[in-house]
Amino acid sequence: MGGHMSKKTPETSSGINFNTDMATELRSYEAACKLDSDLQSFDTTVQARANQVIKTLAVGVEVRSLSFESLKLVTECLLEMDQEVVKVILDCKKDIWKNQELFELVEEYLENSLQTLDFCTTLEQCLKRARDSQLLIFAALQQFEEETELGEKRYTRTLQELKNFKASGDPFTEEFFQMYQSVYNQQILMFEKLLVRQNKLDKKVKQVHTWRKVSSMIFVATVAAVLIFSVVAAAIASPHVAAILAAVSAIPIGSMGKWIDTMLKSYETAVGGHKEVIISMQVGTYVAIKDLESIRVLIDKLEIEIESVLQNVEFAIENDALKVAIEEMKKKLGVFMKNVEDLGVQADTCSRDIIRARTVVLRRIIKLPHN
């Protein structure tokens, strides 16, 4: 129908003005028909029904009258064409401009990121205690060297530094690990929610293409109706009724196509903006999860080193085997210091990644189009 109708003259015998906008819409519809089998099927159906009605009305035009059966056929044809459109519309559930879920996700994401930053601050405090413990070990080793040079056999100061190290305890408390697990679980849950939301947005993007198809169907069904009304206007004897039908038919249909296209573009832009926000939060959440996992691995390594040093200290204190313990601690001190340094770097990376991700998300939100 698109190809057939677009080749018609711009004005019918009943005075209908097929304006430039309408001609453009028809050409657009014709191009869409070539690419979409559903539109091709719809177009064939509309052509067949419109042709059937026009052929039936042709007899009435010749005698300047219409039979009741002819008018009934016109009515049924228009209703059937509208129903074809309704069927497609009902298949696509309309869900436009509902942003509450998105903003709730944004709020949750920002809150989670703040809690993760709080965790990083707590981690820094733990690392400070670990560095203090590291200094106690270093002090014990220095005291051991000095007392060895002085010939001190009791190593009083060395043992005191080791006791201080033991008394300082584990820099990572039970509350710290509970906080870590809570933050990690929140990030995992956030990522899952974002995946669900992205899937919904992907479906909406597909719906935009379907709505474009629907708008084409509505447009061509309206054009078919206009043609049929023009035949009706020509066939009815009463000049008054004919003038009314012609006036109704002369409404610039092309502007309707423009309005629908504008609405769909607006919707597509909004969905695209929402998707950018979701993807930004997904990336930020994924990076945060990986940073937290790296932190946990480094904490576990550091915990192993701390436990090993503590065992050496206890062995030295309880078994009067200070020289053996000191030699072991010398070997482990370098590893201990490196683990503390690596963990500090990772904690700093995590903080910077979270702040950077928050900035990106907030910028995306600022760029979101108004509904």
Results as ranks from 00 to 15, higher is better:
Glu84His: 07
Glu84Cys: 08
Val85Trp: 03
Val86Trp: 12
Lys87Gly: 13
Val88Ser: 14
Val88Thr: 14
Val88Trp: 08
Leu90Glu: 14
Leu90Thr: 15
Leu90Asn: 15
Leu90Phe: 14
Asp91Pro: 04
Cys92Phe: 08
Lys93Tyr: 03
Lys93Ala: 07
Lys98Glu: 09
Lys98Thr: 08
Lys98His: 06
Asn99Ala: 02
Gln100Asn: 04
Gln100Arg: 04
Gln100Ser: 08
Gln100Trp: 01
Gln100Lys: 07
Glu101Pro: 01
Leu102Ile: 02
Phe103Asn: 01
Glu104Gln: 13
Glu107Asn: 15
Glu107Tyr: 12
Glu108Met: 11
Glu108Arg: 13
Tyr109Thr: 06
Leu110Val: 11
Glu111Trp: 12
Asn112Val: 03
Ser113Lys: 02
Ser113His: 06
Leu114Phe: 13
Thr116Arg: 04
Leu117Lys: 10
Phe119Ala: 02
Cys120Asn: 06
Thr121His: 10
Thr122Ala: 10
Thr122Arg: 05
Leu123Gln: 04
Leu123Arg: 02
Glu124Ile: 04
Gln125Pro: 03
Gln125Gly: 10
Cys126His: 02
Cys126Tyr: 02
Leu127Gln: 01
Lys128Ile: 15
Arg129Ile: 14
Arg129Pro: 03
Ala130Ser: 06
Arg131Gln: 08
Asp132Arg: 13
Leu135Ala: 12
Leu135Thr: 09
Leu135Asn: 11
Leu136Ser: 06
Ile137Arg: 00
Phe138Met: 05
Ala139Ile: 07
Ala140Met: 03
Ala140Tyr: 00
Gln143Ala: 15
Gln143Phe: 09
Glu145Asp: 15
Glu147Met: 08
Glu147Phe: 09
Thr148Gln: 11
Glu149Trp: 06
Leu150Trp: 08
Leu150Ser: 11
Leu150Pro: 03
Glu152Ala: 11
Lys153Met: 14
Tyr155Arg: 09
Tyr155Gln: 10
Thr156Cys: 12
Thr158Gln: 02
Thr158Ile: 03
Leu159Val: 12
Gln160Thr: 14
Gln160Tyr: 10
Glu161Arg: 09
Glu161Trp: 04
Leu162Gln: 00
Leu162Pro: 00
Leu162Met: 00
Leu162Ser: 00
Asn164Val: 07
Asn164Pro: 05
Lys166Cys: 05
Lys166Ile: 08
Lys166Ala: 10
Ala167Leu: 13
Ala167Val: 08
Ser168Gly: 13
Gly169Lys: 04
Gly169Asp: 07
Asp170Met: 13
Asp170Cys: 12
Pro171Lys: 04
Pro171Ile: 08
Phe172Arg: 07
Phe172Asp: 02
Phe172Trp: 05
Glu174Trp: 04
Glu174Gly: 03
Glu174Pro: 02
Glu175Ile: 14
Glu175Thr: 15
Glu175Phe: 13
Phe176Thr: 05
Phe177Gln: 09
Phe177Pro: 02
Met179Thr: 07
Tyr180Asp: 01
Gln181Val: 01
Gln181Gly: 02
Gln181Thr: 07
Ser182Asn: 07
Val183Met: 03
Tyr184Gly: 00
Asn185Leu: 03
Asn185Ile: 00
Gln186Arg: 05
Gln186Leu: 07
Gln187Ala: 06
Leu189Met: 06
Met190Leu: 12
Phe191Trp: 07
Lys193Gln: 14
Lys193Arg: 12
Leu194Arg: 04
Leu195Ser: 11
Val196Gly: 11
Arg197Tyr: 15
Asn199Lys: 12
Lys200Tyr: 09
Lys200Phe: 12
Lys200Gly: 14
Lys200Ala: 14
Leu201Tyr: 07
Asp202Ser: 11
Asp202Met: 08
Lys203Glu: 10
Lys203Gln: 12
